[in-house]
Design a binder for these strands. Structure first.
Lengths: 144, 144
DNA sequence: TCCAGCAATGTTATGTTATATCATGGAGGA
DNA sequence: TCCTCCATGATATAACATAACATTGCTGGA
């Protein structure tokens, strides 16, 4: 945990990113749990820790963390989870347990593994998978 | 389009599902576009068509359609898209174009294809992929 | 030193998405 | 008939997210 924070700090230093107290605190909050946390729950925890607690405070910090690979948004839950191997250009697959709410991040590596392969490696039983890719469709690629 | 509606009607008849006017209308709305539509936009269109337009009206119809495979929710956009091959137990992958906002549904078949394979078949250039699976984690599977 | 520029944070307000809850109506079976 | 079930009507509010403008505090150059 503390090790991950230090790595994040180091990474920021090397890349000219500003690892401010709120951002650090939010990352600490995220890494503290193995479930995803909503922005407003984070906001509560920030207030308890003496930070301001208007929504933008949390969302800005989360933007920063997501932007720079320290956290991910879980779209199905409208919530966020810390990333334990930031910095790398990775393309993760998340396994969300409907029983214990745990979320585990599995590396899809070069994007050449299927959901079922990833899941079975992780011992996860998939009931429903959401796959959404953003990018450029065929015609828009042609135009560019 | 009209053909898809009729198929949906047929499917409902065979499966004891109630294909009511609102549900039909919402499906028509969804199938009319190749982009995803938000619930409140659907609500507006429902009102124009003479339906009631409180939020639950749209959300209930959408629940029905999603539940029964006539539509899908695009999590990244908080919006919905009609499904052109409902009824089957399929596991789709969505290609969302950031330029023209089109959303195309590609079949991931037995879940044994990777996002990149699916995308390249569709001529889609992936910039960011979201993969989220719901189910049971290793420990919760063991307990059951 | 002074101040222009910039990034981050503070603050207020509001927009957007989604659900809980209770009431009403209508079809079909005991 | 009466009861149950499902769908819808209606009201209220919860939960999630961002716009817009003010303030602060640092940094680097004149």
């Amino acid at each position: 945990m503390e090790k991950n924070i230090q790595e994040a700090e180091q990474y920021c230093k090397e890349n000219g990113l500003n690892f401010t107290p709120v951002r650090r605190k939010v990352l600490e909050i995220l890494l503290h749990k193995n479930t995803a946390i909503g922005a407003y729950e984070i906001l509560d925890l920030l207030r308890e820790a003496g930070f301001k607690n208007q929504p933008p405070v949390a969302y800005r910090a989360l933007d920063f963390l997501v932007q720079n690979g320290f956290a991910h948004k879980i779209e199905q839950l409208n919530s966020f989870i810390g990333c334990t191997h930031p910095g790398k250009d990775h393309s993760p697959a998340f396994m969300i347990c409907r029983n214990c709410d745990s979320v585990s991040e599995e590396e899809a590596l070069t994007r050449n593994f299927s959901v079922s392969q990833i899941a079975s490696k992780a011992g996860f039983t998939v009931e429903k998978a959401v796959i959404e890719a953003r990018g450029l469709c065929h015609s828009c690629t042609s135009l560019a």
